[in-house]
């Protein structure tokens, strides 16, 4: 023993390390199993399309529809995007990955995400209510894009942490990008709504589609006799 440690000491440490390694491996196994469900890219595509719909909303405004019809069209678009994602998850992802119910530790993390999202929505509603409640505090509207940026980075950052999907943090910066563009270049005067929302939306959809194509390549449907297990 070069470090003056006895053999039995080092063997004890080796056994302890092995025990820690076994625990780490189970953790890795769980993390890998869970992360696979975000490797299909569908959430990314959904997020990007929701963002892109904001610019589509600008087109709808120019169609000269009544408020009700414009709202119905927006809801129909949102519904078809959401419905399409649910359909893809059921018909494309589930037959490839199957389903599982996460363990208690992961369920706690998912609850954490829900809490973060609920807090973010509450903050958003509060922000939307500020102008309705009367004159907003001086200067707050100038800070609004940065408050939105901070909120977005915190929410997506916590989602990235809780769900073990680091790329969500990138979306935390991309999501408020149009608002920041508006702040610096006027009401999309320089860049235009379509470009302001379209570029980050296209990046997110692009990442999602890339992930989806790799997912379809890496996880083929394994035909077989599932009934043998039943």
């Amino acid at each position: 023993m070069g470090s003056g440690m006895s053999d039995s000491d080092s063997i004890g440490i080796a056994a302890e390390e092995a025990a820690t390694m076994a625990q780490d491996d189970l953790k890795t196994l769980e993390r890998r199993a869970f992360r696979k469900f975000y490797e299909d890219g569908l959430f990314d595509v959904f997020l990007g399309l929701v963002m892109a719909m904001t610019s589509v909303g600008d087109f709808i405004d120019h169609l000269g529809l009544s408020d009700g019809a414009a709202l119905a069209l927006t809801i129909a678009l949102f519904g078809s995007v959401t419905g399409g994602m649910i359909w893809l998850r059921r018909r494309v992802v589930r037959p490839r990955l199957g389903v599982f119910k996460p363990g208690p530790a992961r369920r706690r993390r998912i609850r954490g995400v829900r809490l973060v999202l609920a807090a973010s929505v509450a903050l958003g509603l509060l922000g939307a209510a500020v102008p309705l409640l009367g004159e907003p505090p001086a200067g707050i509207m100038e800070w609004a894009p940065f408050i939105f940026l901070a909120n977005s980075v915190v929410v997506f950052g916590l989602m990235a942490y809780f769900l073990d999907v680091p790329r969500f943090l990138l979306y935390g910066f991309l999501f408020p990008a149009p608002m920041i563009a508006d702040f610096w270049w006027g009401p999309y005067g320089l860049v235009g709504t379509v470009v302001a929302f379209g570029i980050p939306a296209a990046i997110i959809v692009g990442i999602g589609l890339f992930k989806l194509s790799r997912f379809l390549r890496d996880y083929p449907i394994r035909e077989g006799e599932a009934s043998r297990v039943c």
Binding site: R94, P95, G98, F100, P102, R222, G224, E225
Partner: peptide
């Protein structure tokens, strides 16, 4: 694989383990 989750279906297990049906 089953230790790290509450429950799962056979397809999930097949995908996770790489075993045959």
């Amino acid at each position: 694989n089953l230790f790290v989750v509450d429950s799962a279906d056979a397809t999930w297990l097949l995908q996770q383990t790489g075993l045959t049906w």
